[in-house]
């Protein structure tokens, strides 16, 4: 990000959020956003509201830009600041009685005490480590609850023992070892997993910490109809695609609490085909990807992209599914 934008941002409160939910949903924050950006009305069209908005607590829009041109962005920020200075004090307050906090966000299901991984994917060429890292990369989070972690680790865990982390690997293979280096992609159905294996071997004990070596592979293949039902991700067309990965890694487990204290997994993959929005255009030629998954210590509560399809009891679902088309279709009023 341009240093001039970072410096200018000091004059604002900065927030980032996923906009599809905000512009389509019926939660309090969605309604507030829609009325702010749509002249006081709920949004019923499908036009994008992506971009950078300068907004007020009173529900006003001072400026907006949807551009990666730095000069355009800087001019928009300045225009917004100027408008803020001229704004009456009462418009710098959230109106009395207006609700803002949503009943449901996926972040509410954050698995406290579980395993949270930050996953990076980057395109890889034939030179691998001898080449230059591709500029095509993306980020996601992977969540496992405390109970799931406890269920996947043997107790007691002693050096020399080995065991499968197949449930962990299945979630990764379905939702996180996917081709979204260039853009939004699709998860795999359980039945599309052709091969999933992740073996852990306890190779050392240092104090209370058990050191694990990890090794495995996955193969996922989607070909034919969409198998994951009605949801946000249902594609308009059947596009065959797949991915085959080799995995290696290491992890530390606290022998007393039975929790992961460190976790790192590397994957290299062959991918083929494409999905509707993953930036491959009409080019479904095969290529390589590299994945790196690392335990997240930042406390970031960003939810995994496909958490709505995790299908686990600890993931709380919204009352109104996010794939519903519009407030009008679900029969909600304007309050």
């Amino acid at each position: 990000m341009d240093p001039r934008v970072i410096a200018k941002a000091e004059s604002f409160v900065c927030a980032a959020d996923e906009v599809w939910r905000l512009q389509r949903g019926s939660e309090a924050d969605c309604v507030f956003f829609q009325k702010a950006v749509n002249q006081g009305e709920r949004i019923t069209d499908r036009g994008t509201r992506q971009g950078t908005w300068i907004m007020t607590p009173g529900g006003g829009v001072l400026a907006r830009v949807n551009s990666r041109n730095i000069d355009d962005v800087l001019a928009t920020l300045e225009r917004g600041l100027q408008a803020w200075r001229e704004l009456p004090a009462d418009q710098k307050r959230v109106p009395e009685g207006v609700k803002l906090e949503p009943q449901h966000r996926w972040e509410h299901s954050y698995p406290q005490g579980g395993l949270v991984l930050e996953r990076i994917v980057r395109e890889l060429d034939e030179h691998a480590l001898s080449g230059r890292p591709s500029a095509r990369w993306n980020r996601d989070m992977c969540w496992f609850s405390k109970e799931e972690v406890q269920a996947m680790l043997p107790s007691p865990l002693r050096p020399g023992s080995s065991f499968d982390l197949s449930e962990l690997a299945r979630r990764l293979a379905r939702f996180h070892l996917v081709d979204n280096a260039r853009g939004q992609t699709l998860p795999f159905a359980e039945s599309e997993l052709q091969r999933v294996r992740l073996r852990a071997e306890a190779i050392a004990k240092v104090g209370d910490t058990i050191v694990l070596a990890l090794e495995g592979e996955t193969l996922a293949r989607a070909k034919g109809p969409w198998l994951l039902g009605q949801n946000l991700w249902k594609p308009e067309a059947e596009l065959a695609h797949g991915i085959e990965t080799k995995l290696i890694g290491r992890a530390n487990v606290d022998g007393k609490s039975g929790a992961f204290t460190d976790f790192e997994l590397l994957g290299v993959a062959r991918r083929w085909g494409r999905t509707q929005n993953n930036g491959r255009g009409k080019n479904d030629e095969p290529g390589r990807l590299a994945f790196h998954l690392l335990i997240d210590r930042s406390g970031t509560r960003l939810a995994p992209t496909f958490i709505d399809l995790y299908d686990r009891p600890w993931v709380r679902l919204p009352e109104i599914p996010g794939w519903m088309e519009s407030p009008a279709e679900i029969g909600l009023g304007d309050d």
């Binding site: 409160v13 980032a16 993306n138 989070m141 979204n180 939810a303």
Partner: peptide, 18 residues
């Protein structure tokens, strides 16, 4: 804080998870 909100909105969360 009585500052304007700079709101970054994208399909897929802008801080990741796109």
């Amino acid at each position: 804080e009585q500052k304007p909100l700079l709101f970054w909105a994208m399909n897929g969360h802008p801080l990741g998870c796109t």
